[in-house]
Computed example of a mutant assay.
Amino acid sequence: MHKMQKYEGKVMTESPPLVEQAFERLRKDVLTGVYPAGVKLKIDDLQEAYGISSSPLREALSRLAQEGLVRADERRGFRVASISTEDLADITRMRLVLDVQALAESIQLGDDAWEASIVAAYHRLERVESRLGDGPLQLDDEWGTLHREFHLSLLAACPSERQRKWSASLFDQAERYRRYSARYRTTPRRKSNEHKKIMDAALKRDNEVACALLHDHILGTQRSVLSVLKVMTLEEQS
């Protein structure tokens, strides 16, 4: 959240530090595919694109490397992490370990405020989704943001801050794959009530059902992306 300060009788918004600006802008552009998988992230080009000096950019790139979105090589600099079925499988495996456990603990420990945040997040997501047309899944930044907020709201009562942060990072790494596959998917977009089912089970404190639904939901994302990756691989080989 930006800080507010007074200047000559006016209230002004204080911009976030340059490192944070660089990190957020780079992160968004990596997640949305502005910088495709494997592309080299040259400091000079980034300086020109963002109007930010090299030092904040390097620190932002190092933070992205810690999240797994960028790969660092002392001799070759930074590159966007590659796209592969093995990497997706590893992301999915870790999400199944961390997210499902975090949801179970949230169901056990969550209070009324936790429940209210889930309902509010779902409502915002559902309203945006209802405005999206049918057909191939559209790349919609607002939907992506609200989708993330909904999933993280489910895990918000997990007592481990480290686990919540890891879950958020893994969600973002999976989001990069979802964005990638959405650009090439040709099958009609099918609206589902998967999110509502997960929410309803969580609010009923039905741990077993909610966790099973989240488990299947995460695997469904993997299957959807793998189907596109398989087609892309075949096209590249032909």
Rank of each mutant, 00 (worst) to 15 (best):
H123T: 13
A120L: 11
W166N: 13
P136S: 06
L139R: 12
G135I: 06
Q138M: 10
E115P: 13
A120E: 08
E161A: 10
R127E: 13
R164G: 06
D112K: 14
P159G: 10
L125F: 04
H151K: 06
G135A: 05
D112A: 14
D141K: 14
T145V: 15
S153W: 00
Q163L: 10
Y122G: 02
R131Y: 08
V128H: 05
Q108V: 10
H123N: 15
S117K: 11
Q108W: 09
D112H: 11
E142I: 12
D134C: 09
R148G: 12
A116Q: 15
S130R: 13
W143Y: 15
D141M: 11
T145S: 11
K165L: 13
W114C: 07
E115N: 13
E129N: 13
L125G: 02
F150G: 00
A113C: 14
S160D: 06
W166E: 08
L132Q: 08
L146N: 00
R127I: 12
G133C: 03
S117D: 15
A157C: 05
S153H: 01
R164L: 09
S167T: 07
A168Y: 04
S153Q: 00
L155K: 06
P136I: 05
V128Y: 03
D112L: 15
S160W: 03
L139F: 14
A113K: 14
G135D: 02
L139A: 09
D111L: 06
K165C: 10
E129K: 09
G133M: 01
H147K: 04
W143G: 10
P159F: 08
D134A: 09
K165R: 12
A156I: 05
L152A: 11
H147Y: 03
G144W: 00
Y122L: 05
R164V: 10
K165G: 08
S153K: 00
Q138V: 14
L154S: 01
R131H: 15
D141Y: 06
A113R: 12
A156P: 00
H151M: 04
E126F: 04
E142L: 12
R127V: 10
L125M: 13
R148C: 10
L139C: 13
A120G: 11
W114K: 08
A113Q: 13
W166V: 11
Y122E: 01
A157T: 03
